[in-house]
């Protein structure tokens, strides 16, 4: 599984990054985690509000600071597909 947090580095993005890492740890996932801070890279995903969360190349959330529980939910939903 491939998980990315998109965010130039504002406070919200840092919080989402921490929550996402916590979610990965809780699930005991073998995941490639990456924080994307470059604007050109972020732009490619087409989001207009940061932070964004990308699972396996698909934007699953943007403009929200998700709690760890909500991220676990999204990861499970992506796994089921």
């Amino acid at each position: 599984m491939d998980i990315k947090v998109l965010g130039p580095g504002c406070k919200n993005c840092v919080t989402l990054e921490a929550n996402t890492k916590a979610a990965i740890d809780t699930l005991g996932l073998e995941a490639d985690f990456e924080k994307v801070t470059d604007y050109a890279q972020i732009a490619k995903y087409g989001i207009m509000s940061t932070p964004g969360l990308v699972i396996d190349g698909k934007v699953v959330s943007f403009g929200k600071v998700l709690k760890t529980d909500a991220i676990i939910e999204l990861i499970k939903r992506s796994e089921a597909k």
Binding site: P8, C10, Y39, A43, G46, I47, M48, S49
Partner: peptide, 17 residues
């Protein structure tokens, strides 16, 4: 529109794209 200076760039890109 909700907006803080830290989202101005993604917004600019999104509008222009």
């Amino acid at each position: 529109t909700p907006f803080c200076s830290c989202s101005s760039i993604p917004l600019f890109i999104g509008f222009t794209s």
